[in-house]
């Protein structure tokens, strides 16, 4: 078991600082002019970043106001998208977004947890850095590449699985497929393509690295003293993981999962390339056709009128708020609990 080296950066306790005459010296000396300029530059760059980030939210709200003013509460309950006849809403796209996101995160959670545990607990030390950068690499694989893989490779291989699930589990409403007869051997596969499930698998692969690196980070911070204590009491490695690492990293697991969910909700291109858009609430995840807020924007921005653009902004704002909430919950959970407290082994 590795022993954590004592932190290099332990600030020593501040000595009281007395001047020659015994009075306490002012803690801050003369600020040089160059320093004042430097501070101003730093503060300015912080302000610019802040301004850009706030502007995104403010501007989206401003542009969306026109459409929201027309649609009012129907915006949340209408599933059609015909902004030019003032009949539009995000009920369908929001359902699709949430279903894709939840499917993705259910698939991603075990994958991320397993990989994080493998890297932090089982992998040989020499391999660790390589594995970490491979996971980072996976996070940087362009979404269009994932989309290509999903549409041209995965789709053909997963249809069989979709068909199997819908044949044996269609009594669960979620897995029902309208217009498909499981007992018809000549049933075409098209009923199962371009579905929420396939998009979910691809998005799962895209968000796993994020979730995995958050989890791995907290697992590797589990105090060495407690790990060694568990091992010294005769626990096996799995026992140690279950008794020390997992309880310690629970915040990281939940936070990483939520962070992944935030990513999954906002994913655009890969989803757009796989799904075939429908504008009705479609809760069957194995069935052809679904939709998401981001692919709605990608689909309709080109042909949108001025008012249509405002409606798309409103949809974008809804997506933005949703990811923001999920992300805030994620970071507050990840920061809470013991993982955040600096424990000394």
């Amino acid at each position: 078991m590795s022993v954590v080296a004592p932190g290099l950066g332990q600030p020593s306790a501040p000595e009281p600082d007395f001047g020659d005459d015994g009075t306490r010296r002012a803690p801050r000396g003369r600020v040089e002019p160059v320093d004042r300029v430097f501070r101003a530059v730093l503060g300015g760059s912080g302000a610019v970043v802040l301004a850009i980030m706030l502007l995104v939210g403010v501007f989206l709200t401003y542009r969306a106001a026109q459409a929201l003013g027309v649609a009012k509460f129907r915006f949340l309950t209408t599933s059609a998208w015909e902004p030019d006849s003032h009949h539009f809403g995000i009920a369908a796209v929001l359902t699709g977004t949430v279903l894709i996101g939840v499917t993705a995160i259910i698939l991603a959670l075990p994958l991320a947890l397993g990989t994080a545990l493998y890297i932090s607990e089982y992998a040989p030390r020499r391999l660790k850095r390589t594995l970490i950068s491979l996971v980072d690499l996976m996070a940087a694989v362009p979404s269009v590449v994932f989309g290509l893989w999903g549409a041209f490779f995965l789709q053909g291989h997963v249809v069989g699985l979709s068909r199997w699930i819908s044949t044996y589990f269609s009594w669960i409403p979620l897995f029902k497929v309208d217009g498909a007869d499981p007992h018809d051997p000549l049933q075409a596969d098209t009923a199962y393509t371009s579905s929420t499930f396939i998009a979910g698998i691809v998005v799962a692969l895209m968000v796993t690295p994020i979730a995995c690196s958050v989890m791995r980070e907290t697992f590797s911070q589990a105090p060495a003293g407690e790990r060694e204590g568990a091992l010294a009491l005769g626990s096996t490695r799995w026992g140690m993981i279950r008794a020390v690492v997992l309880p310690y990293g629970r915040g990281g697991v939940i936070g990483g999962t939520m962070l992944g969910l935030g990513r999954a909700l906002g994913e655009t291109i890969a989803v757009y390339m796989i799904i075939s858009p429908v504008f009705s609430v479609q809760p069957h995840i194995l069935q052809n056709g679904t939709n998401s807020v981001s692919s709605l924007i990608a689909l309709r921005y080109g042909s949108a009128s001025d008012f249509g653009m405002s409606a798309l902004m409103a949809a974008g704002l809804a997506l933005f708020l949703m990811t923001l909430v999920v992300n805030f919950i994620a970071s507050s959970i990840a920061a809470r609990g013991r993982s955040g407290a600096g424990t000394e082994a």
Binding site: M53, G266, T268, A298, G316, T323, L324, N327, S331
Partner: peptide, 15 residues
């Protein structure tokens, strides 16, 4: 704010 923005959906940045 910056941490919240790391989850900014990229399509919203484009929008």
């Amino acid at each position: 704010i910056v941490e919240a923005m790391t989850a900014l959906p990229s399509i919203v940045a484009g929008l």
